[in-house]
Simulated assay, not measured.
Amino acid sequence: MVSRSSALPSGDGLPSFGSPYAPKPRDVRVSDELADLSDLAWSSLDQLGRALRVPDGDLDSTLVAVLDMAIGMVEGCEAAGLNLFEKGRFVPQVVRGAAPPRLDALQQETGEGPCVDASRDQVTVDIDDMTTESRWPEFTRLAIELSVGSMLCLPLWINDRRLGSLSLYGSTPQAFTAPAAHQTAQLLSTHAALALADVQRSEQLRRAVANRDLIGQAKGILMERHRITADAAFEMLVEISQRVNRKVVAIAEMIATTGQVPS
Rank of each mutant, 00 (worst) to 15 (best):
I221N: 07
A105W: 05
V30F: 06
A99D: 07
G97F: 01
A80D: 06
D128L: 04
G216P: 03
E33A: 02
N159A: 10
A218R: 11
S3Q: 09
D129M: 02
C77D: 09
L196N: 04
R207G: 01
F90C: 02
G164W: 02
T172I: 05
S5I: 05
L205P: 00
V249R: 04
G76L: 02
A181V: 01
A51I: 05
A197V: 00
E224L: 07
L146E: 06
L63Q: 06
T124N: 08
S165H: 02
L214Y: 11
G149W: 00
A180C: 14
R141Q: 15
A70N: 10
Q47P: 03
S241K: 03
A22R: 12
L142P: 06
E253V: 01
A79L: 02
A197F: 10
S16Q: 14
G49C: 03
A252R: 13
R4M: 08
D129S: 08
Y21E: 15
Q186F: 10
Q217I: 06
D160C: 03
E145M: 07
R102G: 01
A192Q: 01
R206P: 02
L163E: 04
D36G: 13
V244T: 12
V66P: 08
L106E: 08
A230W: 09
E145V: 09
T110S: 15
L187Q: 05
V244D: 05
I127V: 15
E33G: 00
P101T: 01
V238E: 15
A232D: 14
I240E: 01
A232E: 14
E133H: 10
W136R: 02
I127W: 08
Q47K: 14
S6I: 14
L8G: 03
V54L: 02
K87H: 10
R212Y: 13
Q217L: 13
R102F: 08
R246D: 10
P23M: 07
L48Y: 09
P92A: 01
I240R: 00
A178L: 11
E112R: 15
E239N: 08
G11V: 08
I251H: 11
I215A: 05
P15R: 09
L163Q: 04
V125M: 11
G113A: 08
E112M: 12
T110V: 10
R26Q: 15
P137G: 06
A51W: 04
D160E: 10
G113E: 09
P23G: 05
G164N: 02
S119R: 03
A80G: 10
Y169S: 05
A70Y: 04
F234L: 06
T177C: 12
D58C: 03
N83K: 02
A193G: 15
W136V: 00
Q183V: 09
W157L: 12
